[in-house]
């Protein structure tokens, strides 16, 4: 019997008096691209960090490839993370390292690959995201925001993960660059056959890269369905969100 690659069951997370996640149930199959939409403060980033093991849930269980990794530490956590790539909203590139060292970071520091070999792999991977070898020698501060996202994408795919998380991949980019990033995400995910979980509130991006879309509202998944059905979901919260209306059951986060 096959099991989902990632499964969250009844995950809850509270900060002080603020309950951010109120029993999230979600799963992602191999090769599937799931996009999670939701407004600011709906708990998307916390859900992603909990799934990655950067935060521990107060309640609930997280399964990765059938194994309970909710409380995993040490080697078990490292083994799981070796199969996961992550593109952070800010890029989160290491300032003190060059672009190629950022891309090859996992190969050098976690897999123990020789720097010369790792550099070759990093340059090859940069080519996949349409960046030339000359960019490899630059520092993150010397390249544009769009290029930083592409470098971060290259870093997340270099070790050919089974699952890639994308945290707001198009935020802060102009529409053309954002579309180019969407194309690259699709190309990389399809090329690797990896599962992808993307959190975003950019509907153009969601429609383009999603097989399925789920909506997170007040710490719970309130709707999930095929991407083509998102504009005819029959859910008033989803309707308001995808059409970007201020009037409706969701109060704007002002």
């Amino acid at each position: 019997m096959t099991h989902p690659l990632l499964r969250l069951e009844g995950v809850e997370k509270t900060f002080g008096r603020n309950q951010v996640l109120r029993g999230v149930d979600i799963d992602v199959a191999r090769g599937q691209s799931l996009v999670i939409i939701g407004g600011s403060g709906s708990g998307k980033s916390v859900m992603l960090k909990t799934a990655l093991g950067l935060m521990t849930p107060d309640k609930g269980t997280i399964f990765f490839d059938g194994d309970d990794v909710t409380q995993a530490t040490g080697k078990a956590r490292e083994k799981m993370r070796a199969r996961i790539g992550m593109l952070f909203q800010s890029g989160a590139l290491f300032d003190s390292l060059t672009v190629w060292e950022n891309v090859a970071f996992r190969l050098i520091n976690s897999e123990g690959m020789r720097r010369k070999d790792a550099k070759e792999r990093a340059i090859e991977t940069l080519k996949k995201v349409r960046l030339g070898p000359d960019v490899g020698a630059l520092y993150p501060a010397e390249i544009s925001g769009g290029m930083q996202k592409r470098v971060s994408l290259a870093r997340s795919i270099i070790s050919e993960p089974d699952l890639i998380f994308f945290d707001e991949p198009t935020t802060g980019l102009d529409p053309i660059t954002a579309d180019a990033i969407n194309d690259l995400i699709l190309e990389m995910v399809r090329g690797l056959g990896a599962a992808a979980v993307t959190i975003t509130h950019d509907m153009a991006s969601a429609r383009k890269i999603a097989d399925e879309i789920a909506m997170l509202y007040e710490g719970q998944i309130i709707w999930r369905g095929p991407a083509k059905d998102v504009y005819a979901s029959g859910n008033e919260y989803v309707d308001q969100f995808v059409n970007g209306r201020a009037e409706g059951p969701i109060q704007p986060a002002l």
Binding site: L52, L54, A82, M86, F94, D95, R106
Partner: peptide, 21 residues
């Protein structure tokens, strides 16, 4: 600054312990 720009989270996701690295 690394903490607030998510670089430390990135380090952990790349299987490198912040304590060691």
């Amino acid at each position: 600054a690394m903490r607030v720009t998510e670089q430390i989270d990135a380090l952990e996701t790349l299987s490198a312990s912040r304590y060691r690295y």
